[in-house]
Design a protein around this nucleic acid. Structure first.
Lengths: 346, 346
DNA sequence: TTCCTCTACTAAAACGTTTTGGTAAACTCG
DNA sequence: CGAGTTTACCAAAACGTTTTAGTAGAGGAA
């Protein structure tokens, strides 16, 4: 039970070397003889020695910990999109030898935990997911000067590091593509408008209409209020009340798939009498193979975004002046009933 | 930027007290004058002093960190059920002043990260979710003697702490309830059989049949292989190929809801010509209000389970001999077409 | 030989706490 | 008044590392 772990002192005693030499041997310094280094390595392996993380952190002032703070009563926590980003973050962190410290705040005292972490040396930096337009977490962290990175952008985005997808561009193109294929009545099933990503997508749609000189009524938007299972179904049902709609533009493939159950009773068959287009975040939770060539996708991996978030943040932790401002690329994959030539002229 | 945080020494200097007194004042020791304690408190607040977590951890040998290790290529990560348990864990941890350290392993070297954490003093204990029948993580942690707690039970469950729901009991009762209401051909849409929870539920179903002397063919089981969006839909479609089925028993309400889209085309209406029964994990991702009185539920909150997991584990971390072996209670909520009297005789 | 350089090592300080084992002064009581 | 007790403080050690500022000795050059 709870036996004390082996320490650098134990190794030093056993090998009749100073703890300095043990430390420097294991950390790859050149002022250690090769024979000695080998002896140290072997003894360390034999005893399963690992440096005490807390002692290391105390002396180096670096924790190799990254904070992810999740709002306790926040529905977005349970959204599969969250899990996908997190999976990428975890992978990136593991490869770099970092750990993720996950906590929840209370919405009333959202900044408390950020403040605590800044003060008590628990973490080197923060990942912020799903920012809002005037996000208090971003404002706070900018003030403290602690490293952080944001998934998506808000209005202060040139002051901090971020990883994002080209939301306006993607949705502008999807909209123009649908219009070029003859669709004049489009439903746009979008996410919660409080979040920057949903706002950016709406902007892309609006821009497309403006460029083509079409009235705003060409697209009717339906906003999800919370990420909920089957919200795609419910919003699609709403959209189906507008009989003249011939295309639906979704904000997530999950919603698009859920929406299928609302299409059938309305006599709509994707690719035949209705066109479906959506962003595909490449959720591993969602099998899209049945919809290949049936839906039009613009694909970009949230998992990759997660990995880029964490590597960007780590770069900044290790070199304070490093800034990451990266657009994760997207690929189009068109439904068979969509004429691809329209895409080239965009 | 990166300005050094204020330390106990700074406070001592400012107040012309020893660091001992500062420490003991803030930690509530009785050998500090009330006036002094107040002075210390005020100065600490004024400067936003927080003890350096790593120094604390080094000297106390306790981290107030709990590890949750997630398999990297594991689909279960993206399952909304995971998020719900995690939400509970985070809440419990926050209330007790603990943080969660989240990492991923690689499936090939699953135990590496457990081993590292045991050796390098990163965490005080581990939470293990979704154990398998002969789970190597459990075997390993039992050997090391490090505190851990398991969500669900496997065959060695009297050797460790766990939190679980009465899976066999609940599914025995649901099965008997359906049979008592005249259903002789039941589909059982169950989870992945590798996991103990799915196995335990199957056992409950089997036991019900045995007790009633009914043939095993009364219930046909359909196992999910991965947690996937819409797997409830696909498995329900499969079940609908058996025309004589009059009741479906699901392993999760999410699957039950997804299955709805497969029922309609088969001419089935819940509560009229088909009975639906399921466990309800009270996912905040899922709105079940439309199915109240339509499905039969046995309800138990995964979020509560998560909270109990973390408080049980913390108790064990702080007092090595403490063991938690808790069944989270379940409540029945019957569909209107189900005769409740059958339940009382069980 | 002497001086210099290079190799291979080390003692001690530092990181910021908590805890142990005190003590000096102030009170209490017979 | 003096002995004992209580109150309110503190110096120093400890936790387990990394890093700084060395040194002793071997080898080479003149």
């Amino acid at each position: 039970m709870n036996k004390r772990s082996i320490t650098i002192k134990d190794l030093a005693a056993e090998l009749r070397l100073s703890i300095t030499t043990i430390s420097r041997a294991l950390n790859g310094y050149s002022d250690v003889g090769e024979a000695t280094r080998e002896r140290v390595r072997e003894a360390a392996k034999k005893h399963g020695y690992r440096p005490n993380r807390n002692a290391q952190r105390l002396v180096t002032q670096r924790t190799r910990n990254i904070a992810w703070v999740q709002s306790d009563n926040d529905k977005k926590f349970v959204d599969p999109h969250f899990s996908e980003v997190m999976a990428g973050v975890l992978r990136g962190a593991r490869l770099e030898g970092y750990d993720i410290v996950l906590t929840s705040d209370t919405t009333e005292h959202q900044l408390d935990v950020y403040n605590r972490y800044v003060q008590d040396n628990s973490v080197d930096g923060f990942v912020i997911d799903l920012p809002q337009h005037d996000d208090p977490r971003i404002n706070f962290l900018l003030e403290t000067g602690k490293p952080f990175i944001v998934h998506s952008r808000n209005k202060r985005c040139d002051e901090y590091s971020w990883v994002d997808v080209d939301n306006p561009g993607n949705y502008r193109k999807l909209t123009q593509l649908l219009i070029a294929n003859g669709h004049k009545n489009i439903a746009f099933v979008n996410g919660d408008a409080r979040f920057t990503f949903a706002h950016a997508r709406q902007k892309g749609v609006d821009q497309a209409l403006e460029e083509l000189g079409l009235p705003a009524s060409t697209v009717i938007t339906f906003n999800a209020t919370h990420p909920m299972a089957n919200s795609g179904f419910q919003l699609t049902q709403l959209a189906m009340q507008h009989k003249d709609i011939t295309a639906i533009l979704y904000s997530s493939a999950l919603m698009a798939v859920e929406g299928q159950a609302a299409l059938l009773p309305a006599g709509r068959v994707p690719g035949q009498n209705i066109a479906i287009a959506t962003m595909d975040d490449m959720l591993s939770y969602l099998d899209l193979s049945p919809y290949e060539g049936v839906f039009t996708f613009v694909r970009s991996s949230l998992r990759v975004a997660g990995e880029k978030l964490v590597t960007g943040l780590i770069a900044q932790c290790e070199n304070t002046s490093a800034r990451t401002q990266t657009i994760v690329p997207s690929q189009f994959s068109l439904a068979v009933d969509i004429d691809p030539s329209a895409l080239e002229t965009l």
